[in-house]
Design a protein around this nucleic acid. Sequence first.
DNA 1: ATGGTAGTCTCACTA
Length: 265
Amino acid sequence: MSQDTIRIATWNVNSIKARLPRVVEWLSEASPDVVLLQELKCVDEAFPYMEIEDLGYNVAVKGQKTYNGVAILSKHPIDVDMTELPGDESDEQARYIEAFTAGIRIGGLYLPNGNPVEDGQHPKFLYKLGWMDRLITRAQELLETEEAFVLAGDYNICPTDDDVYDAKAFANDALCRPESRGRYRALCNLGLTDAYRVLNPEPHTYSFWDYQGGAWSRDMGVRIDHLLLSPQAADRLVASSIDRGPRGKEKASDHTPVWCELRTA
DNA sequence: ATGGTAGTCTCACTA
């Protein structure tokens, strides 16, 4: 007996233009229902709509020149609700897109890296923390609907020391700082579930490996790409995994896809 | 080892 499910994936591609062959290849073989992309590094008009739509996906893009940029791909129609995270009119970075598709609400996000931390007062670090506060507020609003939703993307957060290859070396990194982790925990403590971790308890499995220093071949990575599920979505969770395949290819992104599978009802 | 690599309107910045 089979049951209806949808698979939702997140992947920071580090330039959709440079990564297009890898993305087309992976979509063709993995065929997820919904895909959240980050770091497009292109404006809306430069997105390769045709190549993606030819694979059977609808596309919603929030792009930006050179930096950032997020997209939602879906085999179902996409009803876009917002293309920026509420709470700061002056924030012009393309890091958030939220839509209803495939019967579920989905927020795709590219959370600021936040380095350098310096004394904890560097503008890049403070921007990260402020952005996380706004994400917590948005999650609270979504939770009031009591509906299934997914907030997924590149969180630029290692939730615990089990999610980084060298905890000591990263102790003062914005990915691991207590201010960053505290806000991630606050988000989870609202009632959101880390889809990968709840089904995969073994420590030291990663979603990002730096291009430098042979990090991939030495498995020196961090787990920073997450799918957080509302209680109603978590009740439907049947599987979640990290697909390491794309990271080992030529001209790979430094991130690899993470996905979860939810029952549709 | 103040390095290393990749991407982008590059000689600088972001990650």
